[in-house]
Design a protein around this nucleic acid. Structure first.
Lengths: 352, 352
DNA sequence: TTGCTGGGAGTTACCGGTAACAAATAGTCT
DNA sequence: AGACTATTTGTTACCGGTAACTCCCAGCAA
């Protein structure tokens, strides 16, 4: 039914190859012939068959994106910035959400590798589980990790310094005078692990004892932060300040607080990470640690496209974006707090 | 490099066809042979080449999704619910964001049709611009419209009753005693047009004059709502209540109000539409009109998949989801307000 | 024994492009 | 004129699957 190269060739009385050359702007073709072909192609509304092209060239011009959660605006923003780079380069995006499920991630990746030129993955695997990816990369898979990286995996990656994220958040809470600083520590992913590490470092540096009861595991989803906090609030000795592993869990935790009649920033200080959109518009504007999601997506896209276009140089460049603290009011900031260099004060925190 | 059917065939000393049959669970194959083939395939880590399969069968098991804005959680939720249906059915998602740009939409759709089995589109075209889609559908394209439909286009669709959305929002504001009820009316899309119609109907029904200065056009993005409101606030005679065409613009407008030292729900009442995630966690919880995004995505996915699997029955079924008002506090609701049937009271609006 | 039946495997052609090489044509050089 | 070159077009084979058809052979009835 659809028009093929052969149809146009017949119409013009030339060979398929001539048409193919014209369509692809091949240098070895008469300019005049090309014009004529393109004219007819347009008239017949020719659309190249992407399957056939991909089969012949082994290039699909598709980039696969694997994110943990589409409903997390953080990843929506990363995806959008990838698209901003990929589109002009002629690539389209195949997006998958793993819902923070490692098994699902591996399944999806396996399938996506078959139909894309390369993948940008924000992995939810534990950072030590590199076996599967190691094998894929050895077999020629083009992969770039974003946001969540894996130690010991020779693979290009863009992320932030998550230990520093943990330190910035925790030290800010400590600097505000809190002594019982707790942590909603997420899961076993690299991100969670590193932020936890930063949290520990800060406690140590300030001679605060790391009390097991101060740390609670939860997932990385808002609902999980909510649930963890809801349970925590039923116990005695809830910490006076909390560093939540990311913004969605922080939001969830704040919801739980509200339901318990508590107010973030007044009764319990809380700091998130990721600087999601809407964070500054929340009931209690969320103090958070931020780095550029746009930069993240763009860099990842550039690295992947470069890798695709240039064969496979396997330069495993790792880009680390610097995090900065954004002080709003969920941390209950006092105007007298000492503000360090990587801190930005915003909106409501200014009120005195 | 990757393993092909031929490789396995050679290994086993049989023909490609036998392998193909085994892989696809073809009925005309000896069960024992199949076992043997599958065993070897697994051992060799065979992954079928999707391009080749798609070329031969003209089926890609890809569904294209075209949404106006990935950063709008509304669409993220629709996309997620589409995925929830499509995945188990063996389909993957190719997602495109048009950034509310009609030209871009047509470009993308053209390309996506070439590499997918069907499209789910939330169109940003003016509702009368049906020519392009009409042609594609005639040529066999399988398309389902979601959220934003087009009049006079024989095509399955899922949407809400947007005239009713406009009425619910506007009448609520009127019922609260406001007389100068304004409208941020979005763009020329079907959604905006119909909500505007609902707004007009409500004014008429309540014997209120439709004053041109009460209606302001803006896009559908948060940034555009912000900008429109910012300018509006510089003029005299800003309305005392505003129905914003959707939640993002309402949020943008609230930002502009805050910057001007005004507070939504106290100085200016505002109602949005769409019930985005976070709407209830905002500084001023957003009163909005809601319908099920999950239902929307699921129904659309079902209709498209049915259409794909069954050839093309072209039943242009249109599903309309009922909207309901969700009262929070951005409308400045007074506890005495009469509440009608399709209204839900939430959280802060309950305080008295 | 012959002929028929049907399950199971093989053959061939094709899906719609592209790479690599061959061929034709025109123009140039000696 | 003959050989050579450059430019443009055509031929052939192949990418990795699948549909449709053919073929083979065991089992069984006549």
């Amino acid at each position: 039914m659809p028009v093929t190269l052969a149809d146009i060739a017949r119409e013009l009385g030339v060979s398929k190859m001539t048409i193919s050359r014209a369509i692809n702007n091949h240098p070895l073709i008469n300019t005049e012939t090309r014009e004529r072909v393109l004219e007819v192609a347009r008239r017949m509304n020719y659309q190249p068959n992407q399957y056939a092209r991909a089969l012949a060239t082994n290039r699909s011009y598709l980039i696969g994106i694997v994110v943990p959660d589409l409903m997390n605006l953080y990843f929506a923003e990363v995806a959008r910035s990838i698209e901003a780079v990929a589109r002009p380069a002629g690539f389209q995006l195949l997006i998958c959400s793993t819902e923070e499920d490692p098994t699902r991630e591996l399944d999806e990746v396996e399938i996506l590798l078959q139909r894309t030129d390369g993948l940008i993955i924000s992995s939810v695997l534990p950072p030590t589980e590199t076996k599967a990816y190691r094998k894929m990369i050895k077999d020629g898979a083009k992969i770039v990790l974003v946001d969540r990286t894996m130690k010991n995996l020779r693979c290009p990656a863009v992320a932030t310094d998550n230990v520093e994220v943990g330190r910035l958040a925790t030290e800010h809470l400590i600097s505000l005078g809190h002594r019982r600083v707790g942590h909603l520590r997420g899961d076993a992913s690299s991100v969670s692990t590193e932020r936890l590490e930063g949290y520990k470092q800060s406690l140590a540096k300030n001679k605060l004892r790391l009390d097991g009861s101060l740390v609670r595991a939860c997932g990385l989803l808002e609902s999980e932060g909510y649930e963890a906090m809801r349970l925590w609030l039923k116990e005695p000795d809830v910490p006076e300040a909390i560093f939540a592993v990311n913004d969605p869990t922080a939001v969830g935790a704040m919801k739980a607080m509200e339901e318990a009649g508590l107010r973030a920033g007044r009764d319990i200080a809380i700091v998130g990470a990721g600087n999601i959109h809407y964070g500054d518009m929340l009931r209690v504007p969320l103090t958070t640690v931020s780095w550029s999601r746009g930069e993240m997506g763009q860099q990842a896209a550039h690295m992947l496209i470069h890798q695709i276009e240039s064969g496979s140089p396997v330069k495993s460049k790792q880009i680390i974006l610097p995090p900065e603290l954004i002080v709003r009011s969920s941390c209950g900031v006092k105007p007298t707090a000492k503000i360090r260099s990587s801190v930005r004060l915003e909106g409501h925190a200014m009120k005195r």
